[in-house]
């Protein structure tokens, strides 16, 4: 890709990444969401799916770059893709906090409209024990929350000045946790579905390919290096 095309492609990537969110807003405004039997569940799956999918797209950048030197500037898009994964993961967490926990959204909205912002705090205080109970008791929530905390740490340290402040080595060490987040995301999905339901297999297969590609590349690279050393020695 020519370097001067990058800013334009970036705008395009932003639009593509925002597309699912705009779809959600459209479904809300058009009434399609209200016609859905269980809008809360739909929103939760929607945001959870996209969080995982953007994370996978960001994890695909490195293996694809390695295919050809011409693709090397794809690295310029990796940060924004990762940040979008975090944005969707945060929306996903929000569906839990505001829609699943018993938080009364309607009361909060009415309160805010009437100028009583405190109603949000009151509502959060009311559902806090339920959420704490969930976090302590339910392992699918624990593993999901772990993935989100990792993505939060990566998002916070994503600006270039943070990389400089941390030093490349430390930064890379931290950012390798993205693999843990992706694996935790898949486990979260498996532990959430009922026994016998296998829908998470597709996501797991994609992740396996993405991680496998790295293993293959490392092994191949080591061999190549070993060969070069052997040639030199001869």
């Amino acid at each position: 890709m020519p370097t001067r095309a990058i800013p334009y492609v970036k705008v395009l990537v932003h639009l593509i990444c925002l597309f699912p969110l705009m779809g959600m807003i459209y479904a809300y405004r058009s009434g399609a969401l209200a016609n859905d039997a269980d809008p809360v569940n739909t929103l939760t799956h929607w945001t959870g799916d996209w969080a995982l999918w953007w994370l996978f797209v960001s994890l695909a950048v490195t293996p694809i770059r390695r295919l050809s030197p011409k693709l090397s500037n794809l690295i310029r898009f990796r940060r924004m893709l990762g940040l979008y994964a975090f944005v969707y993961a945060t929306l996903h967490l929000s569906t839990y906090v505001f829609l699943f926990s018993g938080f009364d959204v309607q009361a909060a909205l009415d309160g805010v409209r009437a100028g009583h912002l405190g109603v949000i705090g009151t509502q959060l205080k009311a559902v806090w024990p339920t959420m704490l109970d969930d976090v302590l008791k339910r392992k699918f929530i624990q593993v999901g929350l772990f993935a989100w905390v990792v993505l939060l740490a990566l998002a916070v340290t994503s600006p270039t000045f943070m990389l400089r402040a941390m030093g490349g080595k430390n930064w890379q060490r931290l950012h390798r946790f993205v693999y843990a987040a992706a694996i935790a995301g898949c486990i979260h999905y498996w532990w959430m579905v009922k026994v016998g339901v296998r829908t998470p297999w597709k996501d797991s297969a994609v992740l396996a390919v993405l991680l496998g590609a790295r293993v293959v590349w490392t092994v191949w690279n080591e061999r190549r290096k070993a060969k070069m050393v052997a040639v030199k020695a001869a």
Partner: peptide, 8 residues
């Protein structure tokens, strides 16, 4: 409760 609202 599955009803007509968007919010739970």
């Amino acid at each position: 409760r599955i009803d007509t609202g968007v919010f739970p």
